[in-house]
């Protein structure tokens, strides 16, 4: 009698023609490799980031050095490739330096909020019960305020400055990230492999580390990346209102605000920081969308 032997699967199958064995992140990377739109905007972001990092070396002028003689000059005026602002400072240099503050305003609050909100959300989701109610209802209270209003209120209370602006934005983003993390955790917690880990005697911390985080990270990461563009916009908004970065530090939002004076004489100048905000924010948004598509597909 030929009974199925236990070594049915031990023979090496012809694997050469199949897609190679990949982990989750490797297959996400592979899908991204063919997503040319996302790749394009990813490189746009890379360029912007590099320009911001190397601003001290690239910028042709000191971004804070003003000159009453060359105020509001059009692009191409003498050595000022992009013209000068209302105090006669070089626009190109200011845009490059301003990218540093604006990107920081975009990325730092999201990173901080992801750490704090993610930890709160995973805790609430995994422990459940009263802890969940306590954390999530607190978040709901914060979430109930419109985000712009809340950011304005917080940085208004704390006073201006880039640091306080980032702190305000962090507080604004924590509840929504916490929510995403909580709902992802609640879903994963009920799955069989988590039950199996509990049945193996795993402690809460060990189960969260080995089994929960790997599965929650994806959705949280996607959501957080979509917040970067929001954060850049909000950060610029705060600076525009005079609640974020303080002059003379260059910042896109602040530039937009101060250049208002020259909107009738040099409208193009006024549009430059706006365009920078627009392109950066759009790129982050589209990359985040591409990430979502690459990460959402199962197997």
């Amino acid at each position: 009698m030929s009974v199925a032997s236990l070594s049915d699967f031990t023979a090496a199958p012809a694997k050469d023609k199949l897609p190679p064995v990949r982990g989750y992140w490797a297959s996400v990377g592979n899908r991204l490799r063919y997503d040319y739109l996302t790749l394009f905007f990813l490189s746009v972001i890379a360029i912007i980031v590099l320009l911001a990092i190397f601003a001290p070396f690239i910028a042709p002028f000191d971004p804070t050095k003003s000159s009453m003689a060359y105020r509001l000059k059009a692009p191409g005026f003498r050595n000022f490739i992009l013209g000068t602002d209302e105090l006669g400072r070089d626009m190109l240099s200011r845009l490059l330096w301003g990218g540093r503050t604006s990107l920081l305003m975009g990325i730092v609050p999201v990173c901080l909020a992801t750490l704090i909100g993610g930890a709160l959300g995973v805790t609430a989701g995994f422990i459940g019960g009263r802890t969940n109610t306590l954390i999530m209802r607190t978040m709901d209270v914060i979430f109930a305020f419109p985000s712009v209003l809340l950011a304005v209120a917080i940085s208004g209370t704390l006073g201006g400055g880039a640091k306080n602006g980032m702190l305000a934005l962090t507080l604004v983003f924590i509840p929504s990230i916490c929510r995403v993390a909580e709902s992802a955790t609640t879903q994963v917690r009920a799955l069989d492999f988590v039950e199996a880990a509990r049945a193996s005697g795993g402690s809460t911390v060990s189960i969260i580390r080995t089994h929960i985080l790997g599965n929650v990270l994806g959705p949280v990461f996607i959501f957080a990346s979509s917040l970067i563009s929001v954060s850049i916009l909000l950060g610029s908004g705060l600076s525009f209102l005079g609640l974020g970065v303080e002059p003379p530090t260059p910042d896109w939002g602040l530039m937009l605000s101060t250049l208002r004076a020259g909107i009738y004489t040099q409208p193009l100048l006024c549009a430059l920081p706006g365009a920078a905000i627009f392109i950066t924010s759009l790129s982050f948004n589209l990359v985040s969308d591409g990430l979502r598509q690459a990460m959402d597909v199962k197997s």
Partner: peptide, 24 residues
């Protein structure tokens, strides 16, 4: 110990199967 019904989620999708076994 318990063996669950085979489903997409009976094993951690983010872990190589060897690590799932070694966890306990």
């Amino acid at each position: 110990q318990m063996v669950f019904q085979d489903s997409y989620f009976s094993l951690n999708p983010r872990l190589p199967v060897r690590n799932s076994i070694a966890y306990g």
